[in-house]
Amino acid sequence: MFDTKVALIIRDDLAVWQRLNVAAFLATGIASAAPDAMGEPYIDGKGNRYGNMLGQPMLAFEADLHGLQAAHRKGLERELTLIPYVQAMFSTGCDEDNRQAFLAEDADSLNLVGLAIRGPKKAVDKAIKGLQLHK
């Protein structure tokens, strides 16, 4: 199977459009951080070429703020790949503003609305222990 695991954790009190937006951004972060995990491009029966996707599943979980912060802390302790998304990023309009909003956060108490984690399967499982799959 896979030696690594990818988990997207989305805060449970977001509007549906926000949940989808956060999941999309987190997935692109994982793809960028793990180019070795990308699959091959798709080709249909007529020979049309399409883009490639991550070559392994990404599981979506939900959590409240404290659950996200706990997973973040455990991910840092285990040196896993982490892709964070904080509440303030909803009010920005570009990547540079997102990075500035993130930099302004209290690093010990990030107002997380989403977090992607990738790493060895057992280490990711420990970081997300107790979280439920997204409904």
Score class of each variant (00 low, 15 high):
residue 98 N to R: 14
residue 95 D to K: 14
residue 101 A to C: 07
residue 129 K to W: 05
residue 120 P to W: 08
residue 130 G to D: 02
residue 34 A to W: 14
residue 29 G to L: 13
residue 16 V to G: 00
residue 56 Q to P: 01
residue 119 G to I: 07
residue 9 I to D: 01
residue 82 L to G: 11
residue 23 A to G: 10
residue 40 E to S: 14
residue 102 F to S: 04
residue 54 L to M: 12
residue 77 E to Y: 01
residue 14 L to C: 05
residue 33 A to V: 07
residue 62 E to L: 10
residue 47 G to Q: 04
residue 51 G to V: 02
residue 61 F to S: 07
residue 19 R to M: 10
residue 34 A to Q: 12
residue 14 L to G: 06
residue 32 S to Q: 10
residue 108 D to W: 08
residue 62 E to S: 14
residue 22 V to G: 02
residue 29 G to S: 11
residue 65 L to A: 15
residue 117 I to P: 00
residue 30 I to W: 04
residue 31 A to G: 15
residue 97 D to W: 05
residue 18 Q to P: 03
residue 123 A to E: 12
residue 74 K to P: 00
residue 66 H to D: 12
residue 54 L to C: 00
residue 132 Q to C: 11
residue 65 L to W: 08
residue 56 Q to I: 10
residue 15 A to F: 06
residue 43 I to P: 04
residue 75 G to N: 06
residue 81 T to K: 02
residue 42 Y to F: 13
residue 126 K to D: 04
residue 128 I to H: 08
residue 117 I to T: 10
residue 95 D to I: 05
residue 41 P to N: 02
residue 80 L to M: 07
residue 37 A to F: 11
residue 122 K to C: 02
residue 128 I to N: 04
residue 47 G to H: 03
residue 50 Y to A: 03
residue 51 G to C: 03
residue 72 H to V: 05
residue 43 I to T: 15
residue 85 Y to K: 00
residue 98 N to S: 09
residue 116 A to C: 11
residue 133 L to P: 10
residue 29 G to Q: 09
residue 76 L to R: 15
residue 76 L to F: 01
residue 124 V to K: 06
residue 53 M to H: 09
residue 55 G to F: 06
residue 26 L to Q: 07
residue 98 N to F: 07
residue 72 H to D: 09
residue 40 E to V: 12
residue 42 Y to P: 00
residue 11 R to T: 12
residue 56 Q to G: 06
residue 122 K to W: 01
residue 30 I to L: 13
residue 47 G to L: 05
residue 92 T to M: 01
residue 62 E to W: 09
residue 35 P to Q: 07
residue 29 G to V: 10
residue 81 T to C: 05
residue 45 G to P: 05
residue 119 G to L: 05
residue 123 A to T: 04
residue 109 S to H: 14
residue 75 G to R: 13
residue 40 E to Q: 12
residue 75 G to W: 06
residue 80 L to D: 04
residue 54 L to A: 01
residue 10 I to Q: 03
residue 7 A to F: 08
residue 4 T to P: 00
residue 132 Q to N: 14
residue 96 E to Y: 14
residue 111 N to H: 14
residue 84 P to Y: 11
residue 43 I to G: 11
residue 18 Q to W: 01
residue 93 G to V: 07
residue 132 Q to G: 13
residue 5 K to M: 13
residue 23 A to Y: 00
residue 76 L to V: 15
residue 58 M to K: 15
residue 21 N to A: 03
residue 76 L to P: 01
residue 13 D to S: 11
residue 25 F to N: 11
residue 12 D to V: 07
residue 27 A to R: 00
residue 49 R to G: 14
residue 44 D to N: 15
residue 84 P to C: 14
residue 24 A to M: 06
residue 48 N to P: 00
residue 68 L to A: 13
residue 8 L to C: 10
residue 118 R to N: 04
residue 27 A to P: 01
residue 118 R to G: 04
residue 94 C to L: 00
residue 115 L to T: 14
residue 3 D to K: 02
residue 88 A to E: 11
residue 33 A to Q: 11
residue 43 I to N: 12
residue 63 A to V: 15
residue 77 E to N: 13
residue 20 L to P: 00
residue 109 S to N: 15
residue 93 G to D: 03
residue 31 A to D: 06
residue 11 R to K: 13
residue 111 N to M: 09
residue 113 V to M: 03
residue 108 D to F: 13
residue 84 P to T: 15
residue 89 M to L: 02
residue 125 D to W: 10
residue 55 G to E: 13
residue 16 V to K: 03
residue 88 A to F: 03
residue 89 M to H: 08
residue 48 N to E: 14
